[in-house]
Design a protein around this nucleic acid. Structure first.
Lengths: 226, 226
DNA sequence: ACCTGAACACCGTTCAAGT
DNA sequence: ACCTGAACACCGTTCAAGT
């Protein structure tokens, strides 16, 4: 990946452009992806990129898709469907952790290939859980939406932070801010502020997945809810 | 709301600016909010706005918060906690339906006032459900993240669409696109394509909330999961 | 204290011109 | 077919100058 910009000899190609875009996004963040910066990295002019890519939006989608696709390759054979769902979810979570911009883009890229890829893999595992046909769509998209929600928030979090601040520091800052909230208006939030301070993002994320899985399996016997 | 731009006599104020920003966002979409356009609407120069507002980001947050706050006023007294959770969730859903840009911004505005407001209200109702202290944070933030996920997707959907196309038309387009997907790679997605075509966004959203609620209540008796 | 609007430092995107 | 890079039409934001 890192070599994308170095290979000046090779002709421009969609793949090389996407690769360089990922590098740029990783290094500089969402604001760092610019046609000019990208062109500089590829030793060409900004106009050249438009010959291989229609749009900045398409470029971002392609970059996101490339990252998501790699985390979705291993089809988690052997384990239980429940663990497989967790594996898919964690794959997306970790991808966003490593490339925060993926979270932002997934959240605003509905039903296009990157999101669809995740949906497909979640759906297969939900199917394996034995969920009846009528409930498949709801189960899979609930998981998907939860994952996208967390992803968006995490992406936003790491966007607002200087890269050098660590997690604990950040959580302490937020939790301390919560302590100054109006005690009446934010009674509940203040109650769980301690929980925020000590929680582990990844475990918290998984706990949410488990909650939804519990909801899905809880009604496996039940034909319909009131 | 609509009169915000008309009251040229009154002095500029943060409130008037936010009000005009909401109008602009509603009328023109996310791309329509520009300091220049806003200034024109307020019959002033772009620089004047900066005296009352620090940033475009802060302005967007203020606009989002104003919309979210109004939907969160009625504290759903009388009904069951379950119905109250649904009411809070639907409030956010409908707000995003009416103002799609709210969905986009919520998704990228972590732990700031608009999101915190929703979190607080969800948390109170979760508390009323009888969820033990140790599980409160997870339950409330799972609901929140699901809501934010759906919100982001819905916002993105209505962003990519010309305002005149209706829902059915749009869903048909997406579902038809799904039919052309690789049958092997997207086996599950193709299975549920029909479901997508006929589904109602709002009901689907509520079904997801119910799923999470089922997960939350399913373990009310259980001390710990494996 | 508050407003004005020109100016700065950027963007994405296009397109005539080149090879 | 593919690349170049100047040019167009915008942005957010700042700031000297005004009231």
């Amino acid at each position: 990946m890192v070599a994308a910009g170095k290979r000046r000899g090779e002709p421009l190609s969609r793949d090389r452009i996407v690769e360089a875009a990922i590098d740029l996004l990783d290094a500089e963040g969402e604001g760092g992806l610019t046609f000019r910066a990208l062109a500089r990295r590829l030793a060409t002019g900004p106009g050249a990129i438009y010959w291989h890519v229609t749009d900045k939006d398409e470029l971002l989608s392609a970059a996101t898709d490339a990252v998501v696709a790699t985390t979705m390759t291993a089809d988690a054979g052997g384990t239980t469907p429940r663990e497989a769902v967790r594996a898919v979810a964690l794959g997306v979570f970790d991808a966003i952790d490593a490339h925060p911009w993926v979270g932002s883009h997934l959240a605003r890229d509905p039903w296009r290939s990157p999101v669809l890829r995740v949906f497909e893999h979640l759906g297969r595992q939900v199917q394996a859980l034995g969920v009846p046909d009528a409930a498949l769509f709801t189960a899979a998209s609930s998981l998907l939406n939860y994952i996208l929600g967390v992803g968006g928030q995490n992406a936003a979090n790491s966007r607002g932070i200087r890269p050098d601040t660590n997690r604990v520091e950040f959580l302490t800052t937020v939790a301390t801010a919560w302590d100054t909230l109006d005690p009446e208006e934010y009674a509940f939030t203040r109650t769980v502020a301690g929980r925020l301070r000590e929680h582990d993002d990844r475990e918290e994320f998984l706990a949410g997945i488990d909650l939804i899985l519990a909801g899905i399996t809880a009604r496996l016997g039940t034909p319909r809810l009131p």
